[in-house]
Computed example of a mutant assay.
Amino acid sequence: MTHSAFETLADSLLATLEEALADHVDAELQGGILTVEGDAGTWIVNKHAPTQQIWLSSPVSGARHYAYDAGVGQWQDTRGVGDLLTVLGAELGVSLNWQAP
């Protein structure tokens, strides 16, 4: 994937997450870093361009890295433990949907 394609996908994902979460928790996107304040603590979701991954820091599940899988159109855990939207949505009690632009 090109750097430009990664940036487009990652920025779209982060903006969609901020919008979807805003009605349920305190979510703020700034400089490619989404900070989410929930009942269990603070989640950080950010893009990591050198590895073309989305990184999640969660007070529930710890640190996870996600790479985009074009075959299924999802950000999949690099250790094979699900996808970002399912994990984050379950931890925050919110249904999350995103489609690649």
Rank of each mutant, 00 (worst) to 15 (best):
V72G: 10
Q99K: 04
T8S: 14
L14E: 11
S57I: 08
S58C: 05
R79S: 10
S61F: 00
E28F: 07
A20W: 06
L14K: 11
A70F: 04
G31Q: 14
E91M: 04
L92G: 04
S61L: 03
Q76F: 02
V25G: 13
Q74M: 03
Y66R: 07
I33W: 04
E37S: 14
T16C: 05
E19G: 14
G38H: 11
T51L: 11
G31M: 03
G41E: 11
A22I: 09
H3W: 10
H24S: 15
D83F: 03
L96Y: 06
G32K: 09
T2M: 12
Y68H: 15
E28G: 09
G89K: 03
P59R: 10
L85S: 00
G82I: 03
G71A: 06
V72N: 15
V36D: 14
L56S: 08
S4P: 08
W75I: 01
I44Q: 10
D83Y: 03
M1G: 15
G32R: 13
N97D: 09
V87G: 06
V72K: 11
L34T: 11
H48C: 06
S95W: 01
A15V: 11
W43K: 06
V36M: 09
H3M: 13
A20V: 09
L21Q: 15
D77H: 06
A70G: 12
R64V: 05
E7F: 03
T16L: 06
L84M: 02
Q76A: 08
D39S: 10
G80K: 07
L13Y: 06
Y66E: 08
G82H: 01
